[in-house]
Design a protein around this nucleic acid. Structure first.
Lengths: 240, 240
DNA sequence: CAGTGGTCTAGACCACTGA
DNA sequence: CAGTGGTCTAGACCACTGA
C-alpha cells in the first residue's frame, strides 16, 4: 500500500461509480465527511475529487455538493498508430517508397495549401507504405518549408516522412478526418487493387501553435487496415 | 483577472511552450524559483505544474527538474457524434426505420455474442438511419437483455436505439473499430447504392464495468459521412 | 445565510536520483 | 548527499448558490 492517499480515495470512489454502487446522479459525501472517513486533510480529499471531476466522472457544484456524472461521452481516444512500428509488430517488414518529390508554391485556389504554406513554399512528398512487399497505403504529404526548412535538404528515400517529422518537429495540434472512398485509378495502381475498391481515407493536418506544419492524405487499402478508438479504463486491450 | 493564480501560472508556461519560447527538452524553473516569481506557496506552483504534466506537456523528474515534453502523441480525441443531433444541425430531418427486430439466444459460434449476452438473451435491432428521406447508414445492433431488460418491452419504431441507450443506460467503457469496406448486396439495397460501393464501417462495443451492454455494426454511405478526431487546444473548430 | 467547493498559505517529511 | 518533486497537514478566506 505505497499508494498515495489521494490516489486511494480517488480509486475507492471510482470503483464505487464503475461498479454501479454509486449511480449516476447520486450525491457523494461532502469533503468534510470524507476527511473524517480517511482521517486526512481537506486538501487531500479535494485532490482526489478534482481528479475525478477533471475526467468527467463527477460533477461538483458549490453549495450543492458532488454528484456522479451521467456519462455523456461522445468522445473516445483514437490511437494514431505509427505505421512502421505497427507493421513491424505484426512481424512484417516495413518499407516506404517515394514516388514523387517536388518543391512548389501553394496552389492559390486551394485554401488548405495557402494556409499551410504561410509565406513560404511547400514540399510535396508522395509515397507508398509497404508491408512485406505489399503496398498498404499511398500517401500525399505537403510540408511547410517555412515551418520545417531543414527537410528540404534531406533525402527521404526509404523512410516515412511522417515518422521523420514526428521525431524532429514537435507539434501541438492536429486534426484528422476519416472517411471511406473508392480508389481512383492512380491510387488503385499504387495499391495493386481495382479502381473503385474501398479505401480508408485519412486526412491529417498538424500545427505548431498557429503555424501549419504538414497536411497528409492517406489512402489505406480497405481489407488491410482499420483504426481503433477507446473510452474507459481500457483494460480490455490486454488480451489482443 | 479573476483567474486563479495556479491557472495563471499554468497558462503562462503553456503559452511559453506552445509559442516555442520554451523548446522541447528545455528545463523549467524549479518550484522554488516559481514560488518567488509569483510570490506564492509551493502548493500553488505544484498544482500548475501537475496540470501541465497530466496533459503531457511537461515531464517531471525528481532530483532533475521539470522539462518540456517532446510531443509523442499518437492518440487523438475522436468525436462520436449523435447521428440524430448531427443531422438536425445540418438542417435535415432525422429518421430511423426499423427493419428487423428479434429476441434470440447468442450464436455460440460467435464469441462476440456469447460474451455480450452473459447468461441471458440478445435483442437484435436492425435499422436504417435516414437524413431527409435519404438513407445514410444501416446498423445492426445487439443489446444484452440481461444488462438492459427494460428495452424488450419498448417499441423502438421511429427512434434510434443508440440514442435511447445513451440516455437510459450509462456505460463506462467503449471500443470502436473503424474500417472501409465494400457494401454487400443487402447493405447496398438499404443504402440505395451499388453493391461494392465504399462504406465507412463502424463497429462499437460498450460495457458497464465488466458487463457488456451493446454491440453495433454500422455501415455509412461513403460519400455522406466522415469522422473527425482532434488533438490540442482545439480552438480550430470554432470556424466551421 | 449557511453549507459547499475553490483557492491559497506556510510549513513539514519523504523518496528518489543525478552529480 | 543535496536538490528536486510528491505528498500531506491544519488551518484560512472567499465565492457561489440553493434552502
Amino acid at each position: 500500500m505505497s499508494l498515495p492517499l489521494h490516489e486511494r480515495i480517488r480509486r475507492d470512489i471510482e470503483t464505487a461509480i464503475l461498479s454501479g454502487e454509486l449511480q449516476p446522479g447520486a450525491r457523494l459525501p461532502v469533503e468534510h465527511e470524507l476527511m473524517h472517513q480517511y482521517a486526512c486533510a481537506r486538501m487531500t480529499v479535494s485532490k482526489a475529487l478534482s481528479a475525478l471531476a477533471s475526467v468527467g466522472l463527477i460533477d461538483r457544484r458549490k453549495r450543492a455538493g458532488s454528484f456522479v456524472a451521467r456519462p455523456k461521452v461522445h468522445s473516445m481516444v483514437l490511437d494514431i498508430p505509427d505505421l512502421e512500428q505497427e507493421i513491424q509488430q505484426r512481424g512484417q517488414m516495413y518499407g516506404y517508397r517515394l514516388v514523387r518529390r517536388q518543391v512548389r508554391l501553394p496552389d492559390h485556389n486551394a485554401a488548405d495549401e495557402t494556409a499551410l504554406a504561410g509565406k513560404g513554399k511547400l514540399l510535396l512528398l508522395k509515397g507508398v507504405h509497404i508491408a512485406d512487399d505489399v503496398p498498404l497505403a499511398v500517401e500525399a504529404r505537403l510540408v511547410s518549408l517555412s515551418a520545417v526548412p531543414e527537410i528540404e535538404a534531406l533525402t527521404l528515400e526509404g523512410t516515412s516522412p511522417g515518422a521523420w517529422l514526428l521525431k524532429h518537429v514537435p507539434w501541438t495540434e492536429a486534426e484528422t478526418r476519416i472517411a471511406a472512398v473508392a480508389a481512383d485509378q492512380d491510387t488503385a495502381n499504387h495499391l495493386l487493387v481495382e479502381a473503385g475498391a474501398p479505401c480508408l481515407f485519412v486526412e491529417r493536418r498538424t500545427w505548431r501553435g498557429d503555424e501549419g506544419i504538414t497536411l497528409v492524405r492517406q489512402h489505406f487499402i480497405g481489407s488491410g487496415y482499420d483504426l481503433i478508438a477507446r473510452f474507459g479504463s481500457s483494460r480490455r486491450d490486454t488480451d489482443s
